[in-house]
């Protein structure tokens, strides 16, 4: 369960040094788009040294490798995959690539005698990937899916806008697929790092569509994202009351009861528990 994932370029030592201080639930160390072709080797080596010298990070460690349609991904995996990371992010994800990646990770985990089972976060950034998303969420190791709106709109040959009408359908489709398999639906980054009102509006809308987390491209976006994807005080208070009323009703042998004039049945109780689970995980209660 995540709320925020912060992208950090894998070739920037100063940013790597502070990656753990900003309060994101996960940091995505990027070896793909943020790194120039001429710096792929040095970035990979830097990341390796960083991971070796910074084990036991307080947040989830994700590395975005280069795509399986490039010449770089194999070296990325060989050097980066270890017990010092939690997840691999796969760009331009397809079912076929995810199956290949699973095989490679299984082999590396065995060879390196790893304790961890590496998770995979595919990025949906091709039109065909949107169509495949129902299969992608079922792939081994996948425990969250990220919408990559910049590449997707490029693939769709539509203009990317702040209002985001052009990504309404993929957002909803990804959210639906993820929720069906109880994995994280992660929204695309908001690219104007100085527009905090725009970020808030964008994150709230993604949440309305069912996204439960959002990626960030600047640490200053995290406060807003973490707040949006955390239950509100009002929701937490309500959920606590439902939990207490459920306990009391159960003692009386009641499966359904009324609270504030509204019926509380199993779906409502489950909703309340989900809110409380999230609030507890992120320290809101």
């Amino acid at each position: 369960m995540r709320r925020s994932l912060l992208f950090i370029p894998g070739n920037n030592p100063a940013m790597l040094q502070n990656a753990d201080v900003f309060g994101s639930d996960a940091v995505i160390f990027d070896l793909e788009d943020a790194v120039n072709v001429l710096q792929k080797d040095s970035a990979r080596n830097l990341m390796h040294c960083y991971l070796e010298t910074h084990p036991n990070q307080p947040m989830e460690v994700v590395v975005r490798i280069n795509g399986l349609d490039t010449d770089y991904y194999q070296k990325d995996l060989e050097l980066i995959v270890s017990d010092n990371i939690d997840s691999i992010m796969l760009p331009k994800a397809r079912v076929v690539y995810l199956n290949q990646l699973d095989e490679m990770l299984t082999k590396i985990e065995k060879e390196k005698k790893m304790k961890k089972h590496i998770k995979v976060l595919p990025i949906i950034e091709l039109a065909v990937s949107v169509l495949e998303v129902e299969e992608i969420v079922k792939c081994p190791r996948v425990d969250g899916v990220l919408l990559g709106a910049e590449d997707l709109t490029s693939d769709m040959e539509v203009t990317r806008t702040k209002a985001g009408v052009e990504i309404e359908y993929p957002r909803a489709r990804i959210a639906m697929a993820c929720k069906a398999y109880q994995i994280d639906a992660i929204d695309t980054p908001f690219t104007d790092v100085n527009d905090y009102e725009g970020l808030l509006k964008d994150a709230l809308h993604a949440q309305e569509l069912g996204m439960n987390a959002k990626s960030a491209i600047h640490p200053n976006q995290l406060d807003t994202i973490n707040k949006v994807f955390l239950p509100t005080e009002k929701q937490i208070t309500w959920a606590l009351r439902v939990r207490q009323a459920t306990k009391e009703a159960s003692e009386k042998g009641l499966g359904v009861f009324s609270l504030d004039g509204k019926m509380v049945d199993k779906p409502v109780m489950e909703r309340a528990e989900k809110i409380l689970m999230k609030a507890e995980k992120f320290g809101a209660i």
């Binding site: 502070n18 201080v21 900003f22 309060g23 600047h218 640490p219 200053n220 406060d223």
Partner: peptide, 11 residues
């Protein structure tokens, strides 16, 4: 400041 470290310290 817009520096995220500075903002974190300030917050």
């Amino acid at each position: 400041t817009k520096d995220p470290i500075g903002l974190k310290i300030a917050n």
